[in-house]
Simulated scan of single mutants.
Amino acid sequence: MDKPFCTNCTKKLPRLMKLGEDITLRGLEIGVLTMKKGEVARFIFSPNYAYGQQGCLPLIPPNATVLFEVELIDFLDSADSDTFFALTAEQQDAFPLQKVLKVADVEREFGNYLFRKQCFEGAKDRYKRAYSILGRSPSSEAELCQIDASKLPVLLNLSITYLKLECPARALMYGEKALEIDKRNVKALFRCGQACLCMTEYEKARDFLIRAQHIEPFNHDINNELKKLASCYKDYLDKEKKMCCRMLATLNSSS
C-alpha cells in the first residue's frame, strides 16, 4: 500500500491508488483516526470495511478480509481553518491575528500539497483563500510585518501557479505584489521575468531577470532564462526584419 499523506486531520481520509482508481476505504477512515504522526500500524479489515462484495479484481477477490500496514507520515490540521470560514465577516475581523496566520498557513500547505500533485487549479484556489485571509488591516507596525511575512510565500506560490496555468499576466501581477513587500526577492523577480517573457515583453523580462542576476549572479535558472530570452528576442528581431523586407518589396513593386 502507498503511504498516505492525510490532508485533513479531522477526517483523515486516506486516498489509495489501486489499479488506477481513487478509493477511500471505510476501515482506513476509522483506523487512521486512531493514529499519531509518524506511527506505523497494521489493520485487518473485514469485507464491509474494505472492498466489499465486489472486491478489486484482479488483485483482491470478492468478500476478502484484508491486511493493511499504514505509516502516517503527515497530515494537516484544518480545525482552525474550518472554524474560521464558518464565521461571519465581522467575526473573522475579530479573530486573533495568530490564529488568522495559522489558518492562512494551513491553506497554503493545502495548496502546496495540490501543487505537488499538479492539481494547479485546486492549488490556486487554496492560495487565493490564504491571501484573502491576510487582507485584514493591521493595528500596528508589528502586525503589518507579521502579515507581510505570511503574504510573501503565498504571493510567490500564486505567481508560479499562474505560470503553470499559462496565465502570465496574473503571474506577473502576483509577482509584483510580492516585490512590493520585498523588492529584492529573487524568486519574485525571476517569476516576473518569466511572465514577461511569456507575454513577449522582452524589455521588461530582461529588466526583472537582470535585477535577479545582480543579487544571485551564479543562479543557474536565472542565467538559463536570460539565454532563453536572448534567443527569443533574436528570433523576434529576425521575424520583424523579414516582415519589413516583405513590406518594402511590396511597396517597391506597387510603385
Rank of each mutant, 00 (worst) to 15 (best):
K3Q: 07
C6M: 05
N8Q: 00
P14M: 10
L16D: 02
L19G: 14
I23A: 03
T24I: 11
L28N: 12
E29R: 15
L33V: 01
T34H: 09
K36H: 09
K37D: 12
K37E: 11
G38Y: 03
F45T: 00
P47R: 09
Y49G: 04
A50Q: 05
Y51S: 04
Y51D: 03
G52F: 06
G55Y: 06
L57F: 01
I60L: 11
P62M: 08
N63M: 13
A64S: 14
A64T: 08
V66K: 04
L72P: 00
I73G: 02
F75L: 05
F75H: 06
L76R: 00
S78K: 11
S78R: 12
T83S: 09
A86K: 11
L87S: 09
L87E: 04
Q91L: 03
Q92W: 06
L97A: 11
K99T: 09
V100L: 15
D105V: 04
D105I: 04
V106R: 06
N112R: 10
F115Y: 13
F115V: 04
F120D: 02
F120L: 09
R126F: 13
Y127M: 08
Y127G: 05
K128Q: 14
S132R: 15
L134Q: 06
L134Y: 01
R136K: 14
R136P: 00
R136T: 07
S139L: 10
A142E: 15
A142L: 14
A142V: 15
C145S: 11
Q146E: 15
Q146D: 11
D148W: 00
L152N: 03
V154D: 04
L156Y: 00
N157Y: 02
I160D: 06
L165N: 08
E166G: 07
C167V: 13
R170S: 13
L172W: 11
L172H: 03
G175R: 06
E176L: 15
K177R: 11
K177Y: 05
E180M: 14
I181F: 02
K187V: 04
R191H: 09
R191E: 01
R191D: 07
C192Y: 00
C192N: 07
G193F: 07
Q194I: 08
A195R: 09
C196T: 02
L197R: 14
L197F: 02
M199L: 15
E201V: 02
E201N: 10
Y202W: 11
Y202N: 04
R206S: 11
R206P: 00
R206M: 05
F208E: 02
L209M: 03
R211G: 10
A212T: 07
A212D: 03
E216R: 12
D221G: 01
I222Y: 00
E225C: 13
K228E: 10
K228Q: 07
K228D: 00
L229P: 05
C232S: 12
Y233S: 10
K234R: 13
Y236H: 13
K239D: 13
K241H: 06
K242W: 04
M243E: 13
M247K: 14
M247E: 09
A249G: 07
L251Y: 09
S253W: 10
S254Y: 12
